[in-house]
Nucleic acid binder design. Structure first.
Lengths: 219, 219
DNA sequence: CCTGTTGCGTACCGTACCGTACGGTTCCTA
DNA sequence: TAGGAACCGTACGGTACGGTACGCAACAGG
């Protein structure tokens, strides 16, 4: 689908290469490790080029976010005739993908960066990250919600609200904990399955999909 | 109750005064604004004293977390004979308090600080923050869970897991969004009520507490 | 009154980083 | 082949911060 293809600043291959190096530096060294000199050295380019291309250090950071977001395209499902089991499967896949993305090294590093800068500058990076990084996955989920309702499998007043419920059930406080440095889950699939069970118990139609509830073991 | 009164480093009144100033600087300037010189100037003390008292800049940050945590004592409810309505009320109060704490300026600033430092140094601050800032509130919630089960009002296999479900329903992605700079909710009470509704639908006993479900409007 | 302690104010040092400038090299184009 | 643009590597200036050292005032006890 790809309604509007976002403002497309898009960078040259060489610039993308540099941005990739920048992400690498950021991931395994934190913001402190991402210096213009260090990036120039690591990427075999000159500082002058960095400032010519990205204008500013903040411009570099914004470019990194745009670059990373451009890599995480999520496909809108063609959605061939939803069945209860198919809906559950799509929801679980969504949950697993969400956890996978949120626990990714690059995502964590960028979120840490934006959060660190959130105090000053009116949280420009934060808004950028929410816009670019979130819109895609939100769209996918809400599409799924409404497809489920159209198929008579889900029941809710507000798709956005239902989506936030699903999100909370899947992620809980895990995202913040990982941002603070705790390790992620061992089994994202299991967590997604449990969350979807609960979600369907809340918003699924009474004819439950495939055998009441599943196993629900401890965290 | 206050079982163990935590390791009690505890600081002198003068030191607490300085720590308070440090929090103030951190809150409305971010980490960049919290410099030793700036703190010395703002708190009318000398840098030498800062280093004598806290040893290090990281020591200062840790002291700030400990100091803030020492202010947020949460009372264990005496829990006089739980009724369904009382349980719901306690859960909603817990949810509102949780949202209130998480959206507090100081909490956000400290979380941002710890998250910014999470990459380097093995996320020492992050662990500190989770330990000091979270244990109290976790205890309170889990106590509530188990009291509810003992009274035959809640049904779950694992109190910890149920608590995380409640947490996710209450907070969803709001915490991260606020950390990124977005404003909080207008009505925490409403959000708490909706979360508790869903939670009781999942883990409450069939005899629902007072009239099926309440209103559930859009976010 | 003398002396030791505590803490304030400030000057200072080394370092690191942002941003710019300059010389040299490669590659494209006329 | 000549000219120019883009880029690399590096060096430099300005600034700011962490941490230390020194001078001085207030105050306690003998």
């Amino acid at each position: 689908m790809s309604a509007e293809l976002s403002e497309m600043p898009e960078f040259s291959p060489r610039q993308n290469e540099v941005l990739e190096q920048a992400l690498k530096l950021l991931v395994d060294g934190g913001e402190k490790a991402l210096t213009t000199s260090g990036l120039a050295r690591a990427a075999n380019c000159s500082k002058e080029s960095l400032y010519k291309w990205f204008g500013d250090r903040d411009g570099l950071l914004a470019a990194m976010i745009a670059h990373q977001a451009s890599k995480v395209r999520t496909f809108e499902r063609g959605s061939a005739r939803l069945t209860p089991d198919l809906l559950r499967e799509h929801l679980e896949t969504f949950g697993r993908d969400l956890l996978e993305v949120l626990s990714g090294e690059v995502s964590l590093a960028l979120n840490r960066l934006a959060i660190g800068q959130a105090s000053r500058e009116g949280s420009k990076l934060g808004r950028l990250l929410i816009e670019h990084g979130r819109r895609q996955i939100d769209r996918r989920a809400i599409g799924l919600m409404e497809a489920g309702r159209r198929a008579g499998l889900l029941r809710f007043h507000d798709a956005d609200s239902a989506y936030h419920t699903l999100y909370g059930l899947i992620v809980s406080d895990l995202h913040v904990r990982m941002l603070l440095g705790e390790p992620g889950l061992k089994d994202n699939q299991r967590q997604a399955a449990r969350a979807v069970d609960a979600f369907l118990q809340l918003h699924g139609v009474s004819t439950d999909t495939g055998g009441a509830q599943r196993a629900s073991a401890g965290r």
